[in-house]
Simulated scan of single mutants.
Amino acid sequence: MSSGGLAISAAQRAALSRWLDHLRALKGAAENTLAAYGRDVGQFLDFLSQHHGGQEGLAALTALGQPDLRAFMAAMRDREISPRSMARKLSAVKNFLAFVADQEGTDATAALSARGPKFQRKLPRPLAEEAARDIIQVVGDQAREDWIAARDMAIVTLLYGSGLRISEALGLTGAAHPLPEMLRITGKGGKERLVPTLPAAQHAVARYATLCPMDLHKDAPLFRGARGGPLNPRLVQKVMEQARLQMGLPATATPHALRHSFATHLLAAGGDLRAIQELLGHASLSTTQAYTAVDAARLMEVYEKAHPRA
């Protein structure tokens, strides 16, 4: 955690550990997320030890103000940390400081009022409806073996038809075959949700299962690699890359773009924004809005229907 030779104090290290345990237990944060938070806050605490000239306890954290956080951000800028990464680091630090203040019964308002850098959020680019449908067929034309072609088609059909992440689709086991009308998915942070499956997805998975030369028993991965092991997500990305080159689509036409397309096309067809939020497994409605590429007028129309004025 330390990068400058000045160790973080035992009290601060213990507070960091308690905060991560809190996020793990009460917020359901994924382990990769927790690891990133731990690095960000550890970097901040290490900076403070250097900035203030030595180890400090929890009292020093509760006495921090905007100048301390601005100094940290300046140090990050000197290391050419991007505005997006800096904003993420500052968010983690603020969350940690709020936790410490709550534990210590102090007020962290001064430090929490520090503003992070502005950056242009990159919105996802969904495929056009026709392109999304066509790319499924094109993906099926890439493989030399019928069962592999059927596998790839089944996966991309699930990504577009049910809005699954690659990890969620590849996390399915043989117990998901035959594909039910409602599929229970375990998403980020171990959160479960139910997503409907289209007849096209049910047929695609059934065709793959019929052609697959492996025994798809209920406890093993549903989608297999050529040697029988779990399918590497990189292979799905590669298949999509080949298909988009053949179709002349931009580099943004990735497997994850199919999930964006699912949300955008569903909303454009009149779907409720909050229902789509549930289907995608988003904790925040604002995240769902970022997943859609519907114009502002359409968003307002959906909003007005969902929240009629008295």
Rank of each mutant, 00 (worst) to 15 (best):
T254K: 09
G270V: 05
F262A: 04
Q289M: 11
S284K: 14
E301C: 10
E278C: 05
L285P: 05
L266P: 03
T292A: 14
Y291Q: 10
S286V: 12
A263T: 00
D295R: 00
L299Q: 14
Q277P: 01
T264S: 09
H256C: 05
S286D: 13
E304D: 14
E304F: 10
A269H: 14
G270C: 09
L299M: 15
S261P: 03
G281E: 04
E304A: 14
A283Q: 11
Q277F: 07
A253R: 08
G271C: 01
L267T: 11
Q289A: 08
I276M: 15
D295P: 15
Q277R: 01
A283V: 13
S261W: 04
G271W: 01
D295F: 06
Q277W: 03
E278A: 15
A293R: 15
E278T: 09
A290S: 12
H265Y: 00
L273K: 02
A283P: 01
H256E: 08
L285F: 02
G270H: 06
T264C: 09
V302E: 14
T292K: 02
E278P: 00
A290V: 13
Y291D: 07
T264D: 06
L266T: 09
I276H: 10
D272Q: 12
H260L: 07
H265T: 00
T252K: 13
T292Q: 05
A293Y: 13
L258N: 03
I276C: 13
E301D: 14
A275N: 13
S261A: 10
A290W: 06
L279Q: 02
T288K: 01
V302I: 15
L266N: 02
E278K: 13
H260Y: 11
L280Q: 00
L280Y: 02
L273I: 15
G281W: 05
A290G: 12
G271R: 00
F262V: 02
T287K: 01
A253F: 10
M300C: 11
E301F: 07
A263E: 00
Q289N: 08
Y303T: 07
Q289F: 00
H282F: 06
L266H: 11
A297M: 05
Y291A: 05
L258S: 01
A257V: 08
T288G: 04
S286T: 14
T288Q: 05
L285R: 01
I276D: 06
R274L: 07
S286H: 11
L258W: 04
P255A: 00
R259W: 08
A268D: 15
G270S: 03
T292N: 05
S284T: 04
V302S: 14
L267D: 09
G270N: 04
A269I: 09
A268S: 15
L280I: 04
L266V: 06
A253Q: 10
D272A: 12
L267H: 02
M300H: 14
A263L: 01
H256L: 10
L273P: 09
Y291P: 10
L273D: 09
H265P: 02
A269C: 07
M300D: 12
A275M: 15
S284C: 10
Q277K: 14
T288E: 05
Q289H: 01
A253T: 06
A269E: 12
L280W: 01
E301K: 14
T287V: 11
E304C: 09
A296M: 12
T254R: 06
S284Y: 11
Q289I: 03
D295W: 06
Y291I: 09
P255W: 03
Y303S: 05
A296W: 01
E278L: 13
H260W: 06
S284F: 10
Q277M: 11
A290K: 05
D295G: 07
G281Q: 07
